[in-house]
Amino acid sequence: MQKLLEVDKLASGYGRIQIVRDISFSLATGECLGLFGPNGHGKSTLLKAISGLLPCWSGSIRFAGQTISNASPRKIVEAGLILVPQGNQLFPEMTVGETLRLGAFANAARAEEASNLERAYSIFPRLKERDRQQVWSLSGGERQMVAIGVGLMGNPKLLILDEPTLGLAPRIKDELCDAIGAVSKHGVPLVVVEQDVEFLLGLVDRLILIDHGSAVREFSAANSIGHDEIMDMYFGDGKVA
C-alpha cells in the first residue's frame, strides 16, 4: 500500500538532550494512527521533529513521497502535514475569525480557504458564534476547537493532534472527541496523541506505544485491549506479550 508518512529510525531532542531515540513507524494512505504512552517519553518531541520545529538528528521522515526531514515548518505545511500542538495558546489578541483565516496562510491552502472555513464551522458550530471574539477570552475547550480549526484551514493531507483533550472537563472532552471523530469522517487522515486509549480505540486503525523515546509496541485497534494490559504497558516493563 502507498505510504503517506514514513518515519525511519528518527532521533531528535532539545539542545544536546536527546529525547527521541530511534523511532520508526509508517502510515498508509487513508489510515488513522494513535500514539500513546507515559508523559515525558517523547511523543510531543517526535511530533515537533516531524513538523520541522525541532531538527532531526538522524534518520529520515518522508511525507507524501517527499523527504521532509529538516525541512522548514513552512515547507512542511505547504506539503500538507499540519500539527496542532499541545496546549496551543494561539494568538490571544486576535479574533476567532482572524485566527482561522491565518490557518490558510500557506499557498497550498489559499484556494480552499472558503470551503475549509465552512468545514471548520460545520464541525465546530460554536466557532461561528464566537467569530468576532478574541481568542484570550475563550474557554480552554473553545480554544482547542480554534486550534483544530486552524489545522483544518491549512487544507491538511494529514492532521496531527497532540493531546487535544488535555486538561478539559469531562463534558467538554466528550464534545471534542465527537468533533475529532467528525473531522475523521470528513476524510482527513489523523495522527492523534492521547492518554485516553479507549477514545483512541474508537477513532484510529492502529495504536503505537511510545516509551523511553522509542516505539515499543504496535497493535491494531480491531483487537480490543484490556484495561490491565494498558496499565501494564504504562507501568510495566513494556515487554508484555
Partner: peptide
C-alpha cells in the same frame, strides 16, 4: 491585510505562526 495579520501573529505566538505556514 493578510501579511499584516501574520506580523501580529508572529508577535503573539511564534511557534503557532510557524505551524500555520507563515514565513517567519
Amino acid at each position: 491585510t493578510r501579511t499584516g495579520s501574520a506580523l501580529r501573529a508572529i508577535a503573539q505566538n511564534q511557534e503557532a505562526a510557524l505551524l500555520a505556514g507563515i514565513p517567519v
